[in-house]
Amino acid sequence: MDTHKDASGTASVLQIDIRRVREADLPQVVALDERVTQIAKPDYWRDIYDRYAERRVGERFFLVAEDAGDAAEFPLLGYIVGEIRAWEFGSEPCGWVFAFSVEPGTRLQGIGERLFEAMSTEFKNIGIKTMRTMVARHNQLHMAFFRSEGMVAGPYLQLEMDLDE
């Protein structure tokens, strides 16, 4: 059972289980992503599932947060996907988080933190010492969340150029 204070400081009680994704969860993952991004991407998620939940699962993690209580409107309350990437840009093996979302109606109740912590535990358990992600710097919500979990700017900078220029 997870007790967390919401933005107004009142304690709410949610029963959350964090576990690996199952094939039967896929429609709910697609629906949650669609509610958040307004775009339904069933093929994309099928592919992510095949690659991250079926293959090399010792270093790929597709985790979901599930409401363990009865009568939940949306039982799947969030997901996080991450993997070990080694020697990219000359970097030692590190854990990357590249997809992360929590059901809009149940945010700010600690579910994001539970998923984040579960992912860092998976990485630590296989000897990984650094966890990375990429955020749009103007996305205040993502920036605030990862900062509050203790993430800081890493040694790499993302660079890009406009090929039409």
Binding site: R137, Q140, M143, A144, S148
Partner: peptide, 22 residues
């Protein structure tokens, strides 16, 4: 400046307290 502003705009007083505690 834009990067500095985005950084300062994402760190709350609570995050500072957590960082100090860590």
């Amino acid at each position: 400046d834009d990067t500095a502003k985005a950084t300062l705009g994402s760190i709350t007083i609570a995050t500072m307290l957590k960082q100090i505690a860590r």
